[in-house]
């Protein structure tokens, strides 16, 4: 999926206090099937930009185009449908539902769009992520790396053309981190989604097609 941001701005109004401009007149182009890594210091607006791309927040001004369609003009329900069908999220703290088993967590996006998942497909995905023997477990009994794998499986189950990852290696040790980077690369080769990774971790730039640095609310292209 090709993504284009045009004059994208997000300002947080804070009542009596000074407004905060998290994303400022941003123009950005993400080609179909690319992996983009967005680096930046805390508070630079990279997570806000990711939430705007994930349609979790509406911009103050500007447009976001998914394959040429202006998604900022859509209403809440249409944006939710788009999130369910075309976007996969991976969070730093995994955000798995504790009361659902691993299998139920992975299949949750399928249930949301009202589709069933065949056993073979689930097993294939679980085997790819090395969690095939953890499907009956609950998240609390898994390690951080295993929980992140479940989160990746959940993001991939609907084959979304866009994957958004917010600090996906932030909570992992160096060994698990390297595994996760290789996994990202493998998943990308298999499913070819457009991937945006927001991170502090420079190691992730190894698999990126393009690397941006967020500065003053703008993503600036960086040469590696």
């Amino acid at each position: 999926m090709e993504i284009i941001c045009e004059n994208l701005t997000k300002i947080y109004r804070q009542g009596d206090r000074e407004d905060v401009t998290a994303v400022n007149d941003c123009a950005w182009h993400l080609p179909t099937g690319s992996i983009t890594v967005l680096l930046g210091v805390s508070g630079s607006g990279k997570s806000t930009l990711l939430r705007l791309l994930g349609l979790q927040e509406q911009p103050t001004s500007g447009r976001i185009l998914f394959d040429g369609e202006d998604v900022t003009a859509l209403d809440e329900s249409a944006r939710a449908r788009l999130r369910a069908h075309r976007i996969g999220f991976i969070h730093q703290n995994y955000r798995l539902i504790p009361m659902l088993s691993v299998e139920e967590n992975i299949l949750l996006p399928r249930r949301i769009i009202g589709q069933r998942c065949d056993e073979e497909e689930l097993k294939k995905l679980a085997a790819l992520l090395h969690i095939e023997n953890k499907l009956a477990n609950f998240p609390a009994s898994l390690s951080g790396g295993q929980q992140q794998r479940v989160a990746i499986a959940r993001a991939l189950i609907n084959h979304p053309p866009l994957i958004l990852a917010d600090e996906p290696t932030g909570n992992l040790d160096s060994g698990t981190k390297q595994d996760m980077i290789e996994l990202f690369s493998k998943v990308h080769q298999l499913y070819s989604p457009t991937v945006v990774i927001v991170t502090h971790d420079h190691a992730l730039t190894a698999i990126a097609d393009q690397v941006y640095q967020m500065e003053n609310g703008h993503p600036i292209l960086r040469t590696r």
């Binding site: 939710a80 369910a84 069908h85 999220f89 009361m99 949750l108 949301i112």
Partner: peptide
């Protein structure tokens, strides 16, 4: 709230 935020991210509509 936290679990419902996850559901929202996964595309559960306001109505649901």
């Amino acid at each position: 709230a936290e679990e419902h935020a996850v559901l929202r991210d996964l595309g559960v509509t306001k109505g649901r």
